[in-house]
Design a protein around this nucleic acid. Sequence first.
DNA 1: AATAAATTCTATAGATCTATAGAATTTTAT
DNA 2: ATAAAATTCTATAGATCTATAGAATTTATT
Lengths: 203, 203
Amino acid sequence: MSTVTDLKTDKYESNRREAIRAAASVFAAKGYHGASTADIASELGIKQGSLYHYIKSKEEALYEVCLLGIEDYVSRMKSIAGSRQSSEAKLLAVVTSHLASYREKNEAMKVHNDERLYLPKERRGELKRLGTLYRTLLEEILQSGINAGTYRADIDVKFVSKTMIGVCNSWGHHLVRYPELDMFEIVQKCADYFVHGLIETTR
Amino acid sequence: MSTVTDLKTDKYESNRREAIRAAASVFAAKGYHGASTADIASELGIKQGSLYHYIKSKEEALYEVCLLGIEDYVSRMKSIAGSRQSSEAKLLAVVTSHLASYREKNEAMKVHNDERLYLPKERRGELKRLGTLYRTLLEEILQSGINAGTYRADIDVKFVSKTMIGVCNSWGHHLVRYPELDMFEIVQKCADYFVHGLIETTR
DNA sequence: AATAAATTCTATAGATCTATAGAATTTTAT
DNA sequence: ATAAAATTCTATAGATCTATAGAATTTATT
């Protein structure tokens, strides 16, 4: 009996997830305001009005997309941060995870970064919490690299972490827009560049 | 007589520029699709319909804003690239110019970066040309640094230039959003980080 | 097969929003 | 001061677009 109820619920939930993914795709392509609920419905092969069986409002859809975009990305960061590796290995893993996130669930990530500010402030609390958590964990990785003597003691970890996130998002956009780009090549170059910079040294 | 005509023309042109600037401000705050022509008119203190005395369409306004956003920014790059300084000095100047551009005409720059893809492709030719020119000039600066032995010979100049532009745009966004940020501090840190990276070296 | 529940559809109210036309007003030129 | 030109306004046609209500249809249960 409970099995029956669960099955029904599961189907609804799975349809709902489909709807959120369709919204992600449409928002990523046209922007939140440029996209219509008819576009989303059309992506799902249903009529505009039917969409409201799964979402309460267009804004709710945006919120769900943004959450989807950042959640698994933060959880990956958590497991990297908690792992036993060198700071350098962690950094490489972070960049890989960040760019892979764009490649795999690219639309939701993009929407999170480009459109979340269109949500009313009251609705951004959880997103902000997750974003800050992500950056804090990255800062800790950097700090431990400094403590280990691998990285320069005079770097501003907050500045560097924000810069790295900016770089990853920038390349993430390129990856979404140009599917022919080789993700691993970019990851490699980013990590190398983050660590060694431009300058010629005797290594 | 021609003076008279010129004066009139000048006034119209100056009003038109005002309208473009208002559009920049509104597009930056609400996004192209989220902003209405009524918003722009209201910023100017006129009625929605009156706006069309100065622009042919909302899309034309977006185009003009994007052009405004990138033009002077490219011309500054030209003069830096053509100047007689070391590659390192040029790089610092580029970052300064890029971020200052955000600080001064911040809205148009932001709109260029965030909204230009909403223009139909046919209308993006000139913008693309200017953007590519900018990147090419940056690549030349990097290459001359390599040739001079200052920078590592094994860096991918195209990759690095794109990354730098990404970083500048990312910090540009922060600068627009948080006016309390110290631009010169960020410029300094970016330049340092670009060149030296994270790694501890005996310098 | 009959009944209940879930899903989708149609139709629409009520707000937009862009662009235009022509009238009213303000500014400039004679 | 009068005429001409430029600017702004009002009003509106014609397209949107979101969200809802209730009917029709499909799917699941007994």
